[in-house]
Simulated assay, not measured.
Amino acid sequence: MTTHGGMSAPDAYFDSLEGRLVSDGCVTQRQDWSGTCVLVGRRSDFRMRWVATRLDLFTIAAVVPEITAAGLSAFTEESLRYAKAAKGGRPLGMQAGIGAFPVLISDKVDPAAAEWARARQRVAFACMARPVVVDLSCRSVSTYRGKPGLGRLYASYFIQKSTQYFDLAASGSSH
């Protein structure tokens, strides 16, 4: 699958995602994670309504040949490890938390991976992750968009950011 400019749809989406992150005030960088180019976007927000908490939001994306539930689970865990190591500042739980969007982009997706992403938010102590599957073969984005018990204060923020960052209509990618 290619776009009109000759770039693959997953690569075009990856580039457009970086543009949306930068437009929202995220600091971005590309890193090599074991031979895979990974886009890391980061921003930090403080809200009194979050019980005076600062949330560091990491968006970590990669284009992969195929997305499976096991691969998405492993990428989610690796993304949270990275975010915890990179966060700095106040210790987690001391008016500080981490939010993460681990994002895999492909034009070959196992339906079980999309279902795994939609099923629930993944929660660890002072860390929340909402895995995202971008399936460009059927132009769909799968992620949890609910309001869970743990982390409910941040739910509308996650929903707003996921719509802003991952909406295919805003990405400009086509096939």
Rank of each mutant, 00 (worst) to 15 (best):
D11G: 04
V141A: 08
L168H: 05
A85R: 10
V103I: 03
S140L: 10
T76P: 00
G88Q: 02
D56V: 06
S44Q: 15
Y82T: 10
R20L: 02
V27D: 15
R145V: 02
S106C: 02
G151L: 05
R118C: 07
D110L: 01
P65I: 03
P148C: 04
V64G: 03
G25C: 09
A155S: 05
L92D: 10
S171A: 05
T36Q: 13
V51Q: 15
A170D: 09
T36W: 11
Q29W: 06
V63G: 04
G6C: 04
P91D: 08
A113N: 07
V38L: 01
L104T: 04
S140E: 07
A155I: 01
I60N: 02
F158W: 00
M128P: 12
A119C: 08
S23I: 08
Q121N: 13
A96Y: 05
S173I: 14
D24I: 15
S171V: 09
S44C: 13
A114C: 07
D167P: 06
W50F: 03
V141T: 03
K161G: 09
T143H: 04
A86D: 14
K108S: 14
P148N: 03
S73V: 11
L17F: 01
V63A: 05
P102E: 09
R49L: 13
F166V: 11
D15T: 09
P148L: 05
S174K: 13
L21P: 01
R42S: 11
F125I: 09
A114M: 06
G19R: 00
P65L: 01
L92E: 10
G149S: 11
C138I: 11
P131R: 05
D107V: 07
R42C: 10
P111T: 10
K87W: 00
F46H: 14
S79T: 12
A62H: 14
V38D: 00
C26A: 10
E115Y: 05
V40R: 08
Y154G: 10
M94Q: 15
R139K: 15
